[in-house]
Write a protein that binds this DNA or RNA. Structure first.
Length: 837
RNA sequence: GGUUCCAUAGCUCAGUUGGCUAGAGCGCAGCAUUCACAUUGCUGAGGUCGUAGGUUCGAGCCCUACUGGAACCACCA
């Protein structure tokens, strides 16, 4: 396509005509690859789900990172943005299993290998969507490094790390209480469990003394677990029960004899002071059981049905078992009071079913040795967080982190390379996970069928991606959502320090959720989900990027604003038309005009401003700075002035394109290609450097702007076109045509004794007017005189204050003095004018 | 129960060492228009910066308490 022709014809910028071609052009020119020159700058993209579509959160994340990458690339850094896609273990598994169910099949009809292959094929069908959507958002990622979280190099690294941890004694297999979803039949890390308040009941149960007279009453929210009770616990200092410790009670229904023990975990003064201990089905009880060497009797199975219980309860789902137990207790006279009780119940974050704490053999990571150095690194400020308090939050998390269960009972993931000796029960590390049984020295070993928790592999993401390009480790910044600070960012820091002996990134920038336009969380059920690709279709990628990044600060969940997207679209169009004017109408002069000096000074200033804002990750303010520079200064003043001619129009246009490029890459590159016949790319240009201009001339244009503004105010109140007359003045005479055009005047001319309505400011300039109009203007002048007087009075008060003069910084005091002088001059000249009317 | 964040114009939000008369986008009102752009231009209305105290010459910003909203954490049976 010949862009130059489109440029001349099309009054509006049509993103759809350019965006895909521009992206292809970048790719063809290999513009995303590192140059090998300059200081490294790298980011790893938090890998989106390979199986999914990008959502509006990605549409925020991609521009934020792309702004940083493009900015630093233009500033001469050797940039590499590592893309990836995530197998999203559990997430994808849930979708796939739902599909199986819809086809009337079950995971138990297939072997692990078959399931893995089927899921792989399923993901392959979808794969590619996500990648093409990244392209549509303009992501300048280095596609050569594209990595899928199940790629061989990922598995290799994960096994290496696992082995190292195994050798270092950081991996142990143990029976622990795990969070178990009986619907998905897999366990979860603590962090994957959602707590929700539920209205429940608190049942009191009477346990009859076996070797003492009387009974002990305990309260529970889960009466069915009494079938697995192994003790009654009381607080060691509880006088009420002191004599009973060491004695025994009978479990109602079962008649089983269990001991009364003393343990600190029981809270003094709460409830009846005694609790039932079910080591197999409650984390606290499990710990109590460990301390007192209690047996573990499991009464709930993987499928959420009762096991190891009398026939009447066997195979019942938990909730029915509960009803039946309560019924039997009641008829047996063992039920005490029943109260309503609201409490927090753990739920599966995916299907919402109640999480059963079950005692299971799983692989655990002893986290302390990983968490301590991570905490230290943050404490010592080796990693900077934006917003700042998130670093503190992570420090506290590292302090409280408990051992991490990394076993998942789903086939879609990286198999855990561990085998168990069938005779001795001993576990060994071995990578031959494609075989269910292996033989070593005549001994047979069976594979562990579990896979790794996704965070175990994704936690090593920066390590894996930079393994072949080590100069990009540590990466420059980790930009991601605040919701995965704990599960992901924390793990990357721990693994980075453990494996590479160095932090994985120097800075962390966290963005919040994109809420709907009324500040509500987006969800399918509410029907308020914004599909970013639809927005791109309608307004263009640049518009979406600008709209999302504007009005958004670090770490906060904020509303999606369609108005801002429209504003972004309009901005692109404005830029397009600035270019159209400069390319097709501009009059070239040899010498710089006042406006030229001024616009160069503004370019310098805006560039410095953007440098500062990007350094501080203040994206929204950077967008705003760009927006106002282009619209309010370049379009509204410079372009208007340039209609009378300019010597720097081409420099200004190119510089503007550079400034805008990181934020709106497509439209700026589209314009750039219309300017250049060669195959140069805007995205590979050098960022703006300094400009040559005359500071005094630049200041003169500020005066012209003020004069125009003041003239507009006067003209707006009069009918018909008017002329400006002024007493001889170089600044005005040099800019007559500019002033005439900008203020919409009929003429601007010098007069020996100019008269009419005086234009505010330091010039002796007037708008021609009839005597009646001049008198009508009197009220305005009087109002202005009052305002100037008030201002002067305020300033004077401040200066009269001794403490102000002593304590305020000197430049402020000087400034105040100057303002006062100006206000007084204005007052005097207004007063004089009023006299003349 | 603990921690953190938020409260500024009709709506969505800026406002970072405390410093002139608190800003933007959209919306609203008026005017303009054969001009690069109606995805436009100009002009304007609209705010006791949640409440009450405090620190300071000076507070939207710092401190304390309160009110209202949100998020996260948590084994209180």
């Amino acid at each position: 396509m010949c862009y130059t022709i489109v440029m001349k014809l099309s009054k509006t910028y049509e993103p759809s005509l350019f965006e895909s071609d521009i992206y292809e052009l970048w790719q063809d020119m290999q513009a995303f690859a590192p140059t090998g020159k300059g200081e490294p700058y790298s980011i790893v993209l938090p890998p989106p789900n390979a199986n999914g579509n990008l959502h509006v959160g990605h549409a925020l994340m991609v521009p934020l990172q792309d702004i940083l990458i493009r900015y630093h690339r233009m500033n001469g850094r050797d940039t590499c943005w590592f893309p990836g896609s995530d197998h999203a273990g559990f997430e994808t598994w849930v979708v796939f299993e739902r599909k199986l169910e819809a086809e009337g099949k079950s995971r138990f009809d297939f072997s692990r290998e078959e399931l893995y292959q089927m899921t792989w094929d399923f993901v392959q069908e979808q794969k590619g969507n996500m990648e093409s959507q990244l392209r549509r958002l303009g992501a300048s990622v280095n596609w050569q490094e594209m990595t899928f979280t199940l790629d061989q190099k990922v598995v290799d690294r994960v096994y290496k790390t696992f082995k190292k941890m195994w050798d270092d004694g950081l991996i142990y297999r143990g029976k622990r209480i795990v969070n178990y979803c009986t619907t998905h039949q897999t366990s979860f890390a603590d962090i994957e469990v959602e707590h929700a308040e539920e209205k429940g009941k608190l049942w009191e149960i009477k346990y009859l003394g076996a070797d003492f007279k009387g009974e002990i009453i305990v309260a529970t929210t889960r009466p069915e677990t009494m079938l697995g009770d192994e003790a009654i616990a009381v607080h060691p200092k509880d006088k009420k029960f002191a004599k009973l410790v060491g004695k025994h009670v009978y479990i109602p229904i079962l008649g089983k004899k269990i001991p009364i023990i003393a343990d600190e975990a029981v809270e003094l003064g709460f409830g009846t002071g005694a609790v039932k201990v079910t080591p197999a089905h409650d984390p606290v009880d499990f710990e109590i059981g460990q301390r007192h060497s209690l047996p573990i009797t499991e009464v709930i199975g993987n499928d959420g049905r009762m096991i190891n219980v009398p026939a009447a309860f066997l195979g019942l789902e938990v909730k029915f078992a509960r009803e039946k137990v309560v019924e039997r207790l009641r008829t047996g006279g063992s039920l005490g009071a029943v109260k309503d009780f609201d409490h927090q119940v753990p739920h599966c974050y995916k299907c919402g079913s109640v999480i059963e704490p079950l005692a299971r053999e799983q692989w655990f990571v002893a986290v302390k040795k990983l968490a301590d150095p991570a905490k230290k690194a943050i404490k010592e400020g080796k990693i900077q967080f934006t917003p700042k308090q998130k670093g503190g939050e992570l420090e506290r998390y590292f302090e409280e982190l408990r051992d991490w269960n990394i076993s998942r009972q789903i086939p879609w993931g990286i198999p855990i390379p561990a085998f168990q000796n069938l005779d001795t029960g001993e576990w060994i590390f071995d990578e031959r996970v494609d075989q269910e049984y292996i033989e070593i020295d005549g001994q047979e070993y069976k594979r562990d069928n579990d896979t790794f928790d996704t965070w175990f592999s994704s936690g090593q993401w920066p390590i894996i991606l930079t393994e072949a390009l080590p100069k990009f480790y540590p990466t420059s910044v980790m930009e991601t959502g605040f919701d995965i600070l704990r599960p992901w960012v924390s793990r990357m820091i721990m693994f980075g320090l453990y494996v590479n002996k160095e932090i994985p990134f120097k800075e962390v920038y966290l963005h919040g959720l994109v809420l709907d336009e009324h500040g509500q969380k987006m969800s399918k059920s509410k029907g308020n989900v914004v599909n970013p690709m639809e927005v791109v279709d309608e307004f263009g990628s640049d518009a979406l990027r600008l709209g999302l990044v504007a009005a958004r600060s670090a770490g906060l969940s904020q509303a999606f604003s369609p108005d801002k997207v429209v504003a972004g679209r309009n901005f692109c169009n404005k830029l397009w038309n600035i270019a159209r004017f400069i390319e097709t109408h501009e009059k070239h002069l040899e010498e710089l005009t006042t406006a030229d000096h001024w616009v160069l000074s503004k370019l310098q200033q805006s560039t410095a401003e953007i440098d500062r804002l990007i350094k501080d990750y203040r994206f929204a303010e950077a967008v705003e700075t760009v927006y106002h520079f282009v619209w309010d200064e370049v379009a509204d003043w410079y372009v208007e002035a340039a209609k009378q001619g300019s010597a720097v129009a081409d420099i200004v246009l190119e510089s503007v394109l550079k400034i805008v490029h990181p934020f709106a890459p497509f439209v700026t590159e589209a314009i750039w290609t219309t300017l250049h016949d060669d195959d140069s790319l805007l995205m590979l240009q050098q960022w703006n450097r300094g400009y040559q201009f005359d500071r005094k001339k630049a200041q003169e244009f500020e005066e012209v702007k003020e004069l125009v503004g003041a003239a507009r105010l006067v003209v707006a109140k009069l009918k018909g076109r008017r002329a400006m007359v002024y007493s001889d003045n170089r600044v005005i005479s040099e800019n007559e045509a500019v002033i005439k055009n900008l203020a919409g005047l009929e003429a601007v001319m010098p007069f020996e004794k100019p008269a009419g309505i005086r234009i505010a400011g330091n010039f002796r300039a007037y708008i021609e007017a009839k005597p009646a109009e001049i008198s009508a203007y009197k009220a305005d002048l009087e109002q202005k005189l009052i305002e100037a007087g008030n201002l002067a009075e305020n300033l004077k008060k401040r200066l009269d204050n001794d403490s102000y003069r002593q304590n305020a910084p000197k430049h402020l005091v000087d400034e105040t003095r100057q303002k006062l002088a100006e206000a007084e001059t204005l007052s005097a000249s207004l007063a004089k004018e009023l006299e003349n009317i």
